Amino acid sequence: KQRLKLWVRNIPPGISEEEARETILSILTPDNASSLDYFRLSPASKRIPTGTLYLHFKSMEKLVSSHSKLEGFRMPDGKGLEFRLISELSPFQKIPKKRVIDRREGTIGKDADFIAFQQRLEEQKEFKRESAEQQLEKKEAEARKLAEEGGAEGGSECVHTPLLDYLREKREKERNQKDRRREEEKERRRKMEERQARKQAEIDAYQKSRGQAPRGGGAAAA
């Protein structure tokens, strides 16, 4: 396979790809310029102070003719300096493939399957799924209603599934914990009231022994 890609180095820094294209096309003959089917500028960077051009031609004859025109050409940078171009065969000969435009691009909004899919998504957003706790409460409410109304046989029996049984146990534990905390709070308050009563009794006894009227309003000792 023929090697038809040129590597042109020492492009002045700061020059744009459009400016480089205009300069290169002015150097080449019209016949050679029409044979140029790929043009790309790799601009200068901190690591490489000058830019690099990659040119691809349709035939070896046009490449050789263009190489002789570009090699040694002094390219101005617009600031009074000139850079001597170095032209040689590129070590990497491949060029990007032209992008094939899909005729269906941008038409998904008109696709019947996609429209139906969007409608299903909207319906799912509107539908509110019940949680497991809500389902349990609903089942138990139905069971109580059937039991009260004397409905179908076995209507008073609870519905048993692993999930519903787990939720019942969990709710029972939470109820027991609340009851235990409530009893503990009552006991704590009772003990606090007893301590306050004992302390007040000690204060009253002390005041009585000193001949002072107790806080409760009793008569002082003579």
Score class of each variant (00 low, 15 high):
Glu88Val: 02
Ile101Phe: 10
Ile24Glu: 00
Lys98Pro: 01
Pro12Cys: 12
Asp77Gly: 08
Ser65Val: 01
Ser34Phe: 02
Asp31Ser: 13
Gly80Asp: 08
Leu36His: 03
Pro91Glu: 12
Ile108Arg: 11
Thr29Pro: 02
Gly14Tyr: 08
Thr107Lys: 14
Asp111Ala: 11
Glu19Tyr: 03
Phe117Thr: 03
Phe57Leu: 00
Gln2Glu: 09
Glu17Val: 04
Lys62Thr: 13
Phe57His: 10
Ile108Ala: 12
Ala44Ile: 07
Val100Asp: 01
Asp113Lys: 13
Val64Cys: 07
Arg74Gln: 09
Pro30Ile: 03
Arg84Ala: 11
Thr29His: 12
Ser66Asn: 08
Met60Arg: 15
Thr107Phe: 09
Phe83Asp: 07
Ser66Leu: 02
Ser45Pro: 01
Leu53Pro: 00
Asp37Ala: 06
Thr23Met: 07
Leu81Gly: 06
Pro12Ile: 05
Ser59Lys: 09
Pro96Asp: 07
Arg9Val: 00
Ser65Lys: 14
Lys94Phe: 03
His56Gly: 00
Lys58Met: 15
Leu28Asp: 02
Ile11His: 00
Gly14Leu: 09
Arg47Pro: 00
Leu53Thr: 06
Phe92His: 14
Arg47Ile: 11
Leu63Pro: 05
His67Cys: 04
Pro13Lys: 03
Gln118Glu: 07
Glu19Cys: 00
Gln119Arg: 15
Glu18Lys: 08
Ser34Ile: 02
Ser65Gln: 12
Pro13Gln: 05
Pro43Trp: 03
Ile15Cys: 13
Glu22Trp: 01
Arg3Met: 05
Pro12His: 10
Val100Pro: 00
Pro13Asn: 01
His67Gln: 13
Glu22Gln: 10
Pro43Phe: 03
Pro49Ser: 13
Phe39Asp: 04
Glu71Arg: 12
Asp102Met: 05
Lys110Gln: 12
Ser87His: 06
Leu85Asn: 05
Ile108Gly: 01
Met60His: 15
Ile48Trp: 09
Gln118Val: 06
Met60Ser: 13
Asp111Gly: 04
Glu88Gln: 15
Trp7Ser: 06
Ser16Asp: 07
Pro12Phe: 04
Arg104Phe: 10
Leu63Tyr: 00
Tyr38Phe: 14
Asn32Ala: 11
Asp111Ser: 07
